[in-house]
Simulated assay, not measured.
Amino acid sequence: MIRRGGLVVLASVCAVAVSTIYAIQPVLKTAGSDLGLTEGALGWLVAAGQFGYLAGLVLLVPLGDVFNRRTLIVGHLMLTATGAAITAVAPGGAIAAAGMAITGLFAVVVQIAVAYVAANSSPGERGRNIGTVTAGVVAGILGIRVVGGALGDALGWRAVYAVLAVLCVGLALTVRITFQPDVRLAKTPYPSVLAAAGRLVVTDRFFLSRGLIAFFLFASFGTLWSGLALPLGAAPWQFGTTTIGLFGLAGLVGAAGASRAGLWADAGRAQAVTGWSLALLAVSWILTMHTTPTLWMLIAGVVLLDFAVQAVHVSNQHLLTAAYPERSSSAIGTYMAFYSLGSALGAVTTTWAYTAAGWQASCLLGAAYAVAALIVWTLARNTTAAPCAVPAATEPA
């Protein structure tokens, strides 16, 4: 079992690791100008980290079902630090994108941490513990907007990545000292683990439905947070990166409000929470599209949107780790591949929509993604997981 202090450490790992992917968003215009990128190319700078993350989810997260998870967490944090350091010193857009791709590739340490928590929690505490660690993810995604915006204004956008690199190294050492080795009782061949993950997508309707919900959920989420700096940085507001970053606080309020989602999931209400939260996500965009004459409706929409996203995300992970206990790393990693694709889609399409028709077009796009997720849930809400076919394991080494 994991003690409270261990949960805090793993939540911090998640917060810092995921921050390396999203740190570019509050300083996007500044970084783009420094790196010589056009406004139309900014979405690809954001998407570089997401595509790296996708590759890591498919290729690296399943290693958690094979090897010592403590060793994986430490190693991935060190390599995440390397990618952040490359980004911090990049002379141009291509090197910065490469650094962000490396960072994203190994930032999948987040999913290894979630699988570790799920495997070491009792059934009655699994949802609560996953919710605690996942709160670190949301704190990183949204909190980096506040911290990154302030650092970007004070020291430049490169300082944001330098600080994150140092934090990753510090957390790697903390995990190495704090946690005991997490040795698999039996060795499952890595190719078999990858094949089993692929079969989840192809043959398991329950898993596929949860993946598609995540895809549209995070496309909607990415539409907001990858594009919000654009209207806030333009007339009539023309905010700097520090002020834009403060909008992450509104998102943190919403995410914190959804901290009970894990408890609701433990009580057997994960399906119902998913449905009404997706409906709330769609409604939140009605508020978010209003940027004049005041920003209060936008702020309220941000709070509701992040509440809904966190509630659905925790519910999804609870359902998946309960359905596939023998391959939780593979299930979470493959599920999060849908998340990463959705986030990348939101990052790219929100800049296109904004360039073509302004912020209202971006909001309509985000609402469409939310409605698509709700349709998937409606069609698949009575679907159950297929029987778990665990790959044959070899004898313990």
Results as ranks from 00 to 15, higher is better:
Ala386Asp: 09
Tyr161Val: 04
Glu39Leu: 09
Val175Cys: 00
Ser122Thr: 15
Thr288Asn: 02
Thr274Met: 10
Gly92Val: 10
Trp264Tyr: 15
Leu379Trp: 10
Val163Ala: 08
Thr383Gly: 01
Thr203Gln: 14
Ser209Tyr: 09
Pro293Ala: 12
Ile286Phe: 14
Leu54Thr: 03
Leu63His: 02
Gly49Trp: 09
Trp264Ser: 15
Arg210Gln: 01
Leu232Trp: 03
Ala17Ser: 15
Ala94Met: 14
Gly93Ile: 02
Arg70Trp: 04
Ala229Cys: 00
Ile332Asp: 00
Leu281Ile: 08
Val109Trp: 01
Ile299Ala: 12
Gly301Leu: 00
Gly358Phe: 08
Ala48Asp: 06
Leu304Phe: 13
His76Pro: 02
Thr103Val: 06
Arg205Thr: 15
Gln50Ala: 06
Gly156Asn: 04
Leu280Val: 11
Tyr354Arg: 01
Arg205Ile: 11
Leu42Glu: 04
Pro396Ser: 04
Ala97Lys: 05
Ser226His: 03
Ala265Pro: 07
Gly36Met: 01
Ala279Asn: 09
Gly93Glu: 07
Pro26Asn: 06
Val390Gly: 05
Ala272Pro: 02
Gly93Met: 02
Val376His: 04
Ala385Phe: 03
Pro293Met: 00
Arg210Gly: 10
Arg145Met: 13
Ala85Leu: 11
Phe206Tyr: 07
Leu208Tyr: 00
Phe307Lys: 03
Phe307Trp: 13
Cys14Phe: 11
Ala308Pro: 02
Ala393Phe: 04
Ala250Pro: 12
Arg158Asn: 05
Ser329His: 10
Thr291Phe: 12
Gly257Tyr: 06
Ser315Glu: 06
Ala85Trp: 08
Gly127Ile: 00
Ala197Lys: 07
Gly64Leu: 12
Leu59Gln: 04
Phe67Glu: 00
Pro191Gln: 14
Arg205Leu: 14
Ala393Thr: 11
Gly148Gln: 06
Ala272Met: 15
Val193Lys: 06
Leu77Tyr: 03
Ala322Ser: 04
Gly366Ser: 15
Leu365Val: 00
Ala172Arg: 00
Asn382Thr: 06
Thr394Val: 10
Thr291Pro: 03
Gly143Cys: 09
Gly75Lys: 03
Ala389Ser: 05
Ser328Cys: 10
Phe216Met: 14
Gly346Asp: 02
Trp225Ile: 03
Phe106Gly: 11
Arg327Tyr: 10
Leu59Val: 07
Trp157Val: 06
Ala172Tyr: 10
Leu185Val: 02
Thr174Lys: 04
Ala47Tyr: 13
Ala154Asn: 02
Thr355Phe: 08
Leu320Val: 09
Ser277Val: 05
Val9Thr: 13
Ala214Met: 11
Thr351Trp: 12
Phe106Val: 08
Pro26Gln: 03
Thr241Arg: 09
Val138Met: 14
His290Asn: 14
Gly333Arg: 07
Asp153Ala: 11
Ala357Gln: 10
Met100Glu: 12
Leu167Ala: 10
Ala235Arg: 04
Leu45Ile: 07
Gly6Glu: 13
Ala357Arg: 12
Arg145Ser: 06
Gly99Pro: 07
Val376Gly: 15
Arg260His: 13
Ser220Tyr: 07
Gly245Ala: 14
Ser330Thr: 15
Glu39Trp: 05
Thr378Arg: 11
Ser226Asp: 09
Val169Ile: 15
Ala331Lys: 05
Gln271Ser: 06
Ser362Gln: 05
Gly104Met: 11
Ala119Ile: 06
Ser277Gln: 01
His290Met: 04
Ala85Lys: 03
Leu263Gly: 02
